[in-house]
Amino acid sequence: MSAQGMPGRIDHIDDVVAALDRLCAADPRLEKVRALAGDVPLRRAEPGFASLVSIVVAQQVSRASADAIFGRLASLVDPLTPHALAAADDTVFRAAGLSRPKVRTLRAASEAVLGGLDLVRLCDLDAEQAIAALTSVSGIGRWTAEVYLLSAAGHPDVFPARDVALQTAVGRALGIDPRPAEDALRRIAETWAPHRGVASRLFWAYYRHIRDREGAPPS
């Protein structure tokens, strides 16, 4: 824990385990969720442009579809850099299977990085500052920014409440029917501060248990 009481970054699996211990001690309801969820993965990725692209690709599609589309895009634009993506023809994006809104978002992200948005230094900012910087890019919303902070920065206290898999998992675990919408889930998650980052990982793992498929975005 930092001097201000905020946990350090989630950089290693040991950080996940320690934070889960503290989270479940604070909310004993989650002990059963943890037992059913099984292994709770680290879910970390290198900060930078490719990580952001993979998260944009994953917006509002299944994990399997996101993995397939990102795989095609990465093979068509190699290396996957802001310069290369900005220069890519629309036929490349169509071949990868990207929608027009996502193409616009990826082009806007390329231009933002080329214009000075530092996706690595951004990981050192306070969460709300970093989210504000990312969401200033056309097409990038709070979900994309929060997932980037979880996977690329290992931020300890971010919970992407707009995520449908998290809504489904929390609803099932806590007996909330219908599943909580974004605002309601965000209020629920506030009770798990300052360990919302590992709460996200826990409920993605629990979603995998109840649905037998991966619901977490790529990392």
Rank of each mutant, 00 (worst) to 15 (best):
S2D: 12
M6H: 04
G8V: 02
G8H: 07
R9F: 08
I10P: 08
I13W: 10
A19T: 06
L20A: 12
A26I: 03
A26R: 11
R29L: 10
L30S: 09
L30T: 01
K32T: 14
V33Y: 06
A35V: 11
L36A: 14
A37T: 10
D39F: 10
V40E: 13
V40F: 11
F49V: 11
L52D: 08
I55T: 07
V56M: 02
V57N: 01
A58F: 01
R63S: 13
R63D: 07
A64W: 01
A64M: 07
I69F: 00
F70I: 03
G71L: 05
A74I: 03
L76C: 08
L76N: 09
V77S: 09
L80H: 05
T81Y: 01
A84I: 02
L85S: 11
A86D: 13
A87G: 15
D89E: 15
D90F: 02
D90Q: 11
V92T: 15
A95K: 14
L98M: 07
L98P: 12
R100K: 11
R104L: 13
R104A: 15
R104P: 05
A109Q: 09
V113R: 01
G116K: 02
L119T: 08
L119E: 05
V120L: 06
L122E: 04
L122Y: 01
D124F: 06
L125Q: 14
D126V: 08
Q129R: 15
T135L: 05
S138N: 12
G139H: 04
R142V: 12
T144A: 05
V147C: 07
V147M: 03
Y148I: 12
L149Y: 03
L149V: 08
A153I: 04
G154T: 06
P156T: 02
V158L: 03
V158I: 15
R162M: 10
D163K: 04
D163N: 12
L166I: 00
G171N: 00
G171M: 00
G171S: 00
R172T: 11
L174M: 08
G175C: 00
D177N: 11
P178I: 00
P178M: 00
A181M: 08
D183F: 06
L185R: 02
R186F: 05
R187S: 15
R187W: 06
R187D: 13
I188T: 08
E190T: 09
P194I: 10
G197W: 00
F203D: 02
I210A: 05
I210V: 15
D212Y: 04
G215V: 00
A216P: 09
